[in-house]
Computed example of a mutant assay.
Amino acid sequence: MAIRRIKQIIQSHASSDGDGVKIQRTHGFNNAQFSPFLMIDEIKSENPDDYIGGFPAHPHRGIETLTYMLNGHFQHKDHMGNVGELRDGGAQWMSAGRGVIHSEMPMVTDGNLHGFQIWLNLPASKKMSEAQYHDFQPEVITEKLLSDHSLVRVIAGDLTIRGETLTGPLQQTGVPTTIADWQASKGEHFSSCLNPDYQALLYVYQGHIEIEGVTAKAGQLVILDQGEGLSISANDDSGVLLLSGIPIDEPIVHYGPFVMNTMEEIEQAISDYQEGRLVG
């Protein structure tokens, strides 16, 4: 079985969004090796001034978002009447489809906030679908202790470890994906089988990891080459997000909260929002 190796390492960069929320961002809107993922934002702070303004009401079209909180609560409200508040360890999924207007407000617990928002692309055939939303509280996230000091949590799709397939609660993304979180102490090891047709990314949010002799550290995104096997070692106490999915081989045009296939579609999204036609 071919073991995946590190193809590229991308350093996240400091940015801000919403009402001045400070984040570490990694994006690949024009990088086919990211697909079907578009962007990963990490929110991590013990200072409420970094995030207290949150993300007031704003629109989206053409994408899905997955918000996953390690520490802190996160409240979602949208035009469909959905209100969801995550607890530590929970996740929220939203498919914007043809249009959604929502707000996202982080709330600190235990003195710190740490979480992620992942943008996933939608294929052209689904970009104008009806919007959807679902939250997954921590108790429904699939967990497995691999040892006394190694835990994997599967949020979306299926992940095969030691011959056992773990199925996450989110199964309705625009294209098949697997999203998981591995948390481990120094010296622990993680091995799994991945679908060879899926592209795979790793976002290291704590510590240092090693894959086939190459290391990556917190704040870095790893693009893996093709293969069926994945083998990771934790060189320190580490945390890693695994993002894997079938790539969408279509053109991407991105403008702010809208991700479509042509500039004409972007202009239509802007016009629809300005004239109150984005949602209905």
Rank of each mutant, 00 (worst) to 15 (best):
P247Q: 09
S129M: 12
S185K: 01
A91I: 03
G229E: 08
S12C: 10
V21S: 00
W119S: 00
V279P: 02
K22R: 09
D181S: 01
S147F: 06
R153H: 03
E267H: 11
I161V: 14
E130N: 13
P251R: 10
E188Y: 03
G28C: 14
S244C: 10
S185T: 04
G62K: 02
G115P: 01
E265N: 13
P56L: 15
L230F: 07
Q75S: 14
E130G: 11
L70T: 00
N71R: 01
L122V: 05
E210N: 11
H76F: 04
G54I: 10
I10G: 02
P247W: 01
Y133Q: 13
D197I: 09
I155F: 10
Q226G: 13
I10S: 03
S16Y: 06
E188D: 12
L38R: 06
D237F: 00
I246K: 12
V108I: 11
F258V: 04
S150A: 11
H73Y: 02
V100S: 07
V222E: 08
Q75R: 11
A57E: 13
R25S: 05
Q183F: 00
I232A: 07
Q33T: 08
G84I: 03
T26D: 05
A234V: 03
S125T: 08
T67L: 01
E267I: 04
A96N: 10
T178L: 04
P247M: 07
D158V: 14
